[in-house]
């Protein structure tokens, strides 16, 4: 089993906690109390490695840190995303200025974390409020606008609805697969390094008797 730390960031009331609860508990509440500081939840998913012959799934455990929107302005925010493997930057697609605030978060992550392996996913929430025939389309942030930005910044991008569950599992599945790939490559290169180092050490042993071993006949 692999374990990864995932952090949710974004402004107040964009639906961070609702996304986590949809993923972990498959439930949604219209009213959810404000997160104070941070909340912690965990969930596992299964990954099928298509590149290998193995038919068995790999289990990935997400340690999910759901932060308070207001923590953005404070010095403690880095504490939440320190050592994170992935970050979900959430914005509200029904709020005009929400994407620009998410962009501030992306900048902050890129400036402060400095880890090239950190996966950042831009996530537009409240998709259920768009294209709804009853209440009219409340979309204020166009998909293309966010998508172009995500591509420029090399981010994963999704639009989801925590209320209906649309797209939520796909986000975590996709992040899990990407993290698994990174981990696998990391392990393979480590293995390669170990093999190379083992080879080197054999060479050293072979050379040793000819130089300074007092028990050697060549001494």
């Amino acid at each position: 089993m692999f374990q990864f730390k995932l952090v949710l960031l974004g402004d107040s009331s964009v639906g961070k906690s609702s996304i986590v609860h949809r993923f972990v508990k498959d439930s949604f509440d219209d009213f959810r109390e404000s997160t104070i500081g941070a909340a912690f939840l965990s969930q596992t998913i299964k990954i099928r490695d298509t590149s290998s012959d193995s038919t068995e799934d790999t289990v990935i455990k997400f340690e999910i840190w759901d932060t308070a929107g207001q923590e953005r302005y404070k010095s403690l925010a880095p504490m939440y995303y320190r050592n994170a493997n992935a970050a979900l930057v959430v914005y509200d697609i029904t709020q005009q200025d929400s994407l620009s605030k998410a962009q501030n978060w992306v900048n902050e992550l890129k400036n402060k974390v400095g880890d090239e392996d950190l996966i950042i996913c831009l996530l537009g929430n409240k998709l259920d409020l768009c294209d709804s025939s009853d209440n009219g389309d409340k979309r204020a942030v166009m998909t293309d606008e966010a998508k172009v930005y995500a591509e420029e910044q090399d981010l994963l991008f999704y639009e989801v609805s925590a209320k209906t569950g649309q797209g939520v599992k796909d986000v975590f599945q996709s992040i899990g697969e990407k993290l698994y790939q990174i981990k696998k490559e990391e392990m393979l290169s480590k293995k390669g390094r170990q093999a190379a180092s083992a080879k080197d050490s054999v060479n050293v042993k072979l050379q040793r008797p000819s130089t300074n071993d007092p028990t050697s006949c060549c001494y």
Binding site: S12, V14, Q95, K101
Partner: peptide
């Protein structure tokens, strides 16, 4: 009621 407050004047960074 606006769900998300308007942009802040002071940039967090």
């Amino acid at each position: 009621r606006r769900l998300t407050p308007v942009a802040t004047k002071a940039h967090p960074l």
